[in-house]
Design a protein around this nucleic acid. Sequence first.
DNA 1: ACTTGCCTTCACATTGATGAGAAGGTTTCA
DNA 2: TGAAACCTTCTCATCAATGTGAAGGCAAGT
Lengths: 125, 125
Amino acid sequence: MKIGQLSQRTGVPTRMLRYYEEQDLLHPGRAGNGYRDYPESAVYRVQQIRGLLDSGLTTEIIRRIIPFLDKPEEIHLHPDCLTSELADLLRSEAERIQQRIDCLSRNRDRILAYLSAVETRQGQA
Amino acid sequence: MKIGQLSQRTGVPTRMLRYYEEQDLLHPGRAGNGYRDYPESAVYRVQQIRGLLDSGLTTEIIRRIIPFLDKPEEIHLHPDCLTSELADLLRSEAERIQQRIDCLSRNRDRILAYLSAVETRQGQA
DNA sequence: ACTTGCCTTCACATTGATGAGAAGGTTTCA
DNA sequence: TGAAACCTTCTCATCAATGTGAAGGCAAGT
């Protein structure tokens, strides 16, 4: 798949797809003419990157955790390669993500609580 | 409470506390000498702002939803003031927040799944 | 062959969040 | 009174993510 098509299917500008590649988040192959050639899986990958960026993670963090995010079935690194520092990094990232989730959940609940409170009150009036 | 003390208690630089004020997220009073004067509740407020910023929300979004985030018990706006567009804004923000939560949850689960898979395998070896 | 549209790299600009420092007033304490 | 530690406003710089456009190569249709 060429970059324009990937852009269309994900809604992400080509400029950004090239940027994500520069940041080592994508690694498309190259066709004979130099055009980037993306596999089908790139669509999901880009959506994943977008979601994480929108959630406040930086490209640097994403780059470090993305190898472990694909399919839990296939272990990408031999367990030998999982140094204890890398495991710590993953654990602490999971924790930071959890904190974000907690914060967002709290505030989502408050918004919804407010809405339902007002609706109830209006229903009575 | 003066700005330095608020900074110490929240870990947020004074520079940022002034910035949040400029962005209409904080509204401290002023003492006779011109010093900012924060209520006790500002500590929690600042932590809330930090959490939301870290979670990828912009100051503009935060500014718009923060009035509804305090205590669900006290309804801040009369129901009359909740125009339908405002309600729609809140609903759509809640939905966007939910999407972030979903994305983060998925990826947290994958990190944890990877870690436990590797640990299991190492335990066997 | 020509046009249209996609692709390439390169480069400059912008925006939001943040860091950092100057220049000067205030409070506190010795 | 003087020094230290706070506060004020203002300004300039940085960094990540993104917008935008130039200059040119490639591909497909007429």
